[in-house]
Every structure is written in C-alpha cells, then in structure tokens.
Design a protein around this nucleic acid. Structure first.
Lengths: 145, 145
DNA sequence: TACACTAATTATAAAGATTATTATGTAATA
DNA sequence: TATTACATAATAATCTTTATAATTAGTGTA
C-alpha cells in the first residue's frame, strides 16, 4: 500500500534532481512506513542495523532535502527534538501529554480562521497548524489505579 | 496600564509563596511590558544592563516559576528557542514566516474541535493550540520591490 | 533589630539536538 | 576515462536548556 507512495516520492525526488542513495531510500522508506512521526534520532537508531556506518548528519541532511521538496513536514512541540511527518495531506495532531504519543486527526480545514486572521492582522496568510492536547486512552487506564 | 497587571502578578506570586527578588521582578516586568513574546535569551540580554551579574539560569528558573504558577505560557515554534507570552487569556498567534513577528489574534475557542477529537481518538482532551502562518504587512511591502 | 532558616542567585559544567566542516567516496557526464 | 558535482562519514562546533554546588539574600520570629 505504501509501496505506491514510496515510488511516487522517488519520482518526485528524481524530478528535483536528487540522487537516490541507499541511505536516502532507507530514510524515506522508514518514514513512509512509520505511523509514529519519529524524531531524527529514532530514524537513525532504526536504520543503524542496516547501515552500521551511517552518520546522524546524513539523517538530518536527508530530512532537510525531503522537507525542502515538500515530501515531509517538520513538527516542533514543547519537547527537545523535532518530529517528522510524511503525511502531507491536511490534518491535525492530537498529542498525549503523558506519553507523548501523536495521533493524526482529520477535521475540515479551518479556512474561516485564516480569512479572519487576514482581515484582522493584515497578514497574507498561507497556512495554519493546530494541535489538540490531552491524555490517550492507554494513559487514562494506567492512571486509573 | 500594565502597572496593574504587574501588581496582580506579584500578588499571585506571593500567594504561591514565591519571593519577589529584584531579578524576578525585572523579568516579570519586562515580560508584561513587552508585546513581542521574547525568548529567554532576549530577556537575559535586555536585563544585562540593569543586572550585570545576572545568570542565564536565573532567567530560565524564573520563567519556569511563572509558567508553573500560570502567569506565562511557553510557545514553541519551528525555530530553536522557546518564546514566552504573559497574556494568558485565550488567544491564538499569527506568525510572519519572513521576519518571525508574532501577533496575538482573538477568535472564539474551537470547543467543537476538542470534543470531536475526543470522540474520534478516545483521548481525554484538555486544551489545544493553533498558529496561523503568513507574511506580515511590513514584509509584504518590502517584497513588493 | 538580629538570627536562623530557606529559597534564590551565580558560576559553571553538562546534556542534548542540530548544524558546520572537511576529507573521502560515489554517481553522472562529457 | 577524466572531470565535475553531489553524498556520506566522522568529527567538531554551536546553541538552547538543565543540573550542580557554593554563595548570597529574603523572610519570619524572637
């Protein structure tokens, strides 16, 4: 299923003149298959087995390449490190304040907010982001004790 | 005008058993008077003249104290460092992608989003945040050339 | 006011994430 | 094949934030 998305992403990369190296392919594949918005370090650790010599810098470099092309989004929350999301379709995130889990959440885009913000502030608005915070069901049952 | 807010904040601090030291007072006063959601480093640099011996750690410590009590909010965006906002009334932020300017933006709270997120994800939702991104009018006219 | 207790500050070190650098390697092209 | 440009790896450097330990300074009470 995500095989198709991988092929599409590779075509996008090639069209942008980016070489498909084994490391780059692996980072991209891992991101597309992971539902968990991993950090750069998580990606690095996950691929350590396959590429024992890979450098952390390579992960960061490739994530930046993907980001510049528009294949992934960088998510920055309160915690120390950025997370990366290859789902570029419009969606929001629900975040567990207890364990840090991030769940995708679909909701009709809040175009009204954008247009009102334009009127009130004089900005030329391009996009918006929203996160909902709470406690996931796992942590709820854990805390019930 | 913000003198009243400063006094209120000091009362809140005292009620929480927090001492009002000169440094603490200065950080609080600076935050209340600044409309620009400064970073910890910006606060530190702004108060360097008045407190030549002040440590960066003091700024961070005090910001955490204020945050724990609920006097300020910590804002984390794409850039490296957190920003601090002493306006704790419900509001959203509009951010200029060109110069980084942050403008407050009032909009009715999106309670519907929270309740739908609860239903869909099973989370116990506590709050949400939203940022609108675009280009401020200053940068628009600059780019017009 | 003086004393004692506790919290706050300072200076410094440490941790963690990200970026920069440089040399080496690899792929594409003429 | 020679040349060029891009990628990688290893490492160092930077930047933000937190932790530690010693000193200083507020605050309540006698």
């Amino acid at each position: 299923m995500s095989e198709k998305r991988l092929q599409e992403a590779i075509v996008t990369l090639k069209d942008s003149g980016v070489r498909i190296t084994p490391q780059r392919h692996a980072v991209l594949e891992f991101l597309l298959n992971s539902m968990t918005h991993p950090t750069a370090d998580e990606i690095y650790k996950a691929l350590e087995g396959k590429f024992p010599n890979m450098s952390v810098a390579t992960v960061y470099n490739n994530l930046r390449v993907f980001k510049d092309i528009g294949l992934v989004r960088e998510l920055t929350y309160g915690d120390a490190s950025s997370r990366f999301d290859c789902n570029t379709t419009e969606h929001y995130h629900v975040i567990c304040e207890s364990c840090g889990k991030i769940v995708d959440f679909h909701y009709p885009s809040l175009d009204e907010v954008e247009s009102l913000a334009e009127q009130v502030t004089g900005f030329d608005v391009s996009n918006h982001r929203m996160e909902v915070y709470g406690t996931c069901s796992d942590c709820q049952s854990k805390n019930a004790h």
